[in-house]
Each structure stands twice: as C-alpha cells, then as structure tokens.
Amino acid sequence: MKLFYIAILFFCFSLLTARWISGGELAGFFLILALACMTLLRWREPKSGVTIAADFLLCLLIYPDALLIVGVMLTADVFYRLGEAERERGLKRRDAEAGKVYEMESLQRDLLSAAARIEGMTAVSERARIAREIHDNAGHEIVAAYISLQAARAEISGTDGAVTLYDAALSRLDEGINKIREAVHNLAPVSAIGADSLRNVCEKFPGEVQFNIFGNTSRVPVHVWNVLEACLNEALTNAAKHAPGEISRVTLDATPHIVRLCVENATPQSRFSGTKATNTLTRASHKPGVGLRNLRHRAASVGGNFSANLSDGKFRAVCVIPIMYSESI
C-alpha cells in the first residue's frame, strides 16, 4: 500500500516537472517547491490546523492552476496516510517500551521487597536454629546433669558447710536451666517460616485449599521459601480471580535435589465448553500477566523455573527450584 502511495506521489511530481520543462522554469519550479513544502508539512504535522490553512491559502492564491490543487490534494492524502500509519506505529512502539519499563519497575520492586524479606527470614531462621541447638543439645545435657546431681544429693554426707555449698550450687543450676528455657522460648520465631509459612498462606486463603507436603523440607534454603511463597500467593490470587469457589490443590515435593510447588485449580466449566473460538479466546485471555512473568524472573534468579498453563480444564502453576544450586549461591 505504501508503494502505491509513493507511486501516486511520483506521478504527481512527474506531471509538475513536465509542466515545468514545457512551460518554463518559473511556471513550474515554484509549484514543485511549494508542493514539496506542503507535502513535508503534511508529513510533519498531519491534520494540523496550520497545514490545512496553508493548503487553502495556496489553492486560493493559485486557484486557476488545477494541477496544483490536484497535486496538493493527492500528496496531502498520501502524506496524511503515511503520517498516520507512522504515528500509529510510533504509538505502538512507545506503548511497548512503556510496558517493558513498567514491567521492569514492577520486577525491581518485587526483587527489592523479596531481598528485604529474605534478610528478615534469614535472621529469624538463624535464631530458630540457635534455639533448637540449645534446646536439643546443650539444654538436654544440662538438665540431665541437674537430675543426676539431685539424685546424688541423698548420698552426700559430711560437714554442714559442704552440704550448704552443694545445695547453693544446685539452686543456681536450677535458675540457669530456667533462664535457658526462657532464652529458648524468646529465640523461637513467632512468625511461621519454611513450610509453615506456606501452610499459613493456605490457611488464610478465603477459599478451600488442600495442602500436602511430601519429602524432607529441612534442607530447603530460606531464600527459596521466599520465592515459593510468592508463587503460592500469585497462584492462589489467580485462582480467586478466575475460578472463585473452586478447590485449589497445593502440593509441595521436596527431594534431596529439587523442591517443586504445584498449585492447581479447576476453572469454571462454562469457559471451556464452547466452540474452538471460545477456547482460543480463553487461552488468549490467560496470556501470562506481569505477575506471572515476574515470578518467572524470580524463579530463574535462583536457578529454577516457573510455568503456568491452562490444560484439561485446569489452571496449573508449577515452580521447580534446584536445592543444590541454591545452596551454592
């Protein structure tokens, strides 16, 4: 189509050039120059008031020259169309650029908030580990020693001073055990971490969620939990938005090498029972949005993969993250 317009334009300028050569330079050359200015103006300012006014002015000034009027009208149309097409392309390009920038900004926000959360989770996780160490190892040993010392109390005989000292030591040990118990209690995290955090999300979700865990999740690093929690939140939000009232199934599989989170829910039957066209429309309407794309980036940042698809009447989001890879980061 563009070639067609250019051919019209070329024809128009050829006519004017022929007129210029046959009728003398002053008769034709100024028309060509004027027409060139008009067409460039059309190109630069499609449909502007100045352009239209300039067209009319020129046509009024050289009214008897029908060729000029035809030329101006034709070229005006050509350049208007070319200008419009280019403007439209420019707008699309600008929208695409703006969309990308918006997506990048959204991803950046997500990553910053994830980094802050991971920092907090790491501290909480470390405190939980210290509390567990004290409780399971040092605490038990001290309590065992205290019980043994209490049992030995009946066997002690001798000067009053030695018995008094022994009782005082036992009393101080008792206080120490109480303090250790308090410290362990204080160190233990109040907020849920690890698999418990996922369970929490499922329990707080307004719809019905079946949550199952398979395998040992103790080896999954803290930052991986953060990504898994984000995936679960996004998938459940999608379920609430597109399939309200349907049961969501959340499955967490932890193997020595990978951790896999799968969230699936049935989508309303009516959306899939139509013709091929409706299915296409449904698929098109489920094109991954910014949230899902951001999750893909976040999963990729820890060496994993996130995918979401719609098949067999079910929306399924799966996030797989390698554990060994995560530990080496």
């Binding site: 002053l26 050359f29 100024f30 120059l33 004027a34 060139a36 200015c37 460039l40 103006l41 190109w43 630069r44 390009r93 600008r94 650029e97």
Partner: peptide
C-alpha cells in the same frame, strides 16, 4: 526577489525535513 523566494522555500523544505528527530 523570486530567487530569494526560491531559497526561502528550499530552507522551509529542508527545515521541515530536518526537524524530524528520532530518539528511540
């Protein structure tokens, strides 16, 4: 003066064309 007019038209055409800049 016709020559000046021709040069003015040339300048207008050049400036109209040259006033186009792509940034992206």
């Amino acid at each position: 003066f016709l020559s000046l007019l021709a040069m003015a038209l040339f300048a207008t055409a050049f400036l109209l064309y040259g006033g186009r800049r792509r940034i992206l």
